[in-house]
Simulated scan of single mutants.
Amino acid sequence: METMENVIAQYLEGHPPAKVLFEGLKSMGNLYLIGGVLREYRDNDGIINLRDIDLISDAPKSQYENFMNTFNPEKNAFGGFKVHCPGLIVDIWRLEETWAYTNQKIKCSKSNYAKFLPQTVFLNMDAIVYDLKNDLWNDDIYNEAVRSGVLDVVLEENPQTALNIVRCFVLQRRYGMELSPDLCRVIIDYCYDNPNAVQELYNIQLGRYKKEILTLRELQENLLHVTNKFYSFM
Rank of each mutant, 00 (worst) to 15 (best):
L214T: 11
D193W: 06
C184N: 08
M28E: 10
L216W: 03
N194Q: 12
E178D: 11
K115C: 12
L216K: 13
V166N: 03
V37W: 01
F78Q: 08
M125Q: 06
C85E: 13
K82A: 13
N72W: 12
N222D: 15
G29S: 05
I165N: 01
Q10M: 12
N76D: 14
L33H: 03
Y64T: 04
D52A: 06
Q63F: 14
E178C: 05
Y192G: 00
V166M: 06
V90F: 09
I48T: 12
V154N: 01
K61Q: 14
V153Y: 01
W99K: 04
Y190D: 00
E178G: 03
I92E: 01
E13S: 14
L171D: 06
S148R: 09
G29I: 05
L155P: 00
P86G: 10
S57L: 12
L201G: 03
K82R: 14
H84C: 08
F22G: 07
Y113R: 03
T70E: 09
L21V: 10
L224H: 07
L50R: 02
E156F: 00
C184I: 02
W93R: 03
D43I: 09
Y175S: 02
P159V: 10
N103A: 10
E74K: 13
F169P: 00
L88C: 08
T102L: 11
R147L: 14
D131C: 09
L31H: 02
Y231L: 13
N134S: 13
E144Q: 14
L155H: 03
Y231N: 15
N158A: 05
L151R: 06
N103S: 11
L179P: 01
E13Y: 13
Y231F: 15
E144M: 13
E178H: 10
T70H: 06
L21E: 06
G207E: 14
G80S: 09
V166T: 04
A145P: 02
V154P: 04
G24D: 05
S57C: 11
S180L: 00
G87I: 12
G29V: 05
V7H: 03
I47C: 11
Y175A: 07
C191D: 03
N228A: 13
V90R: 04
A18Q: 11
S62T: 14
Q160V: 13
L117P: 01
L155N: 02
P195N: 07
G149N: 08
A59I: 10
Y41I: 05
S232N: 14
Y142I: 10
Q205I: 09
I34M: 09
L55R: 04
L155Y: 04
L155T: 01
N228T: 13
K82M: 11
L88D: 03
Q119S: 10
E74F: 12
N76T: 07
Q63A: 15
S27R: 15
K26Q: 15
Q205L: 11
N66R: 08
C184S: 06
D152V: 00
K115V: 14
F67L: 12
Y192E: 07
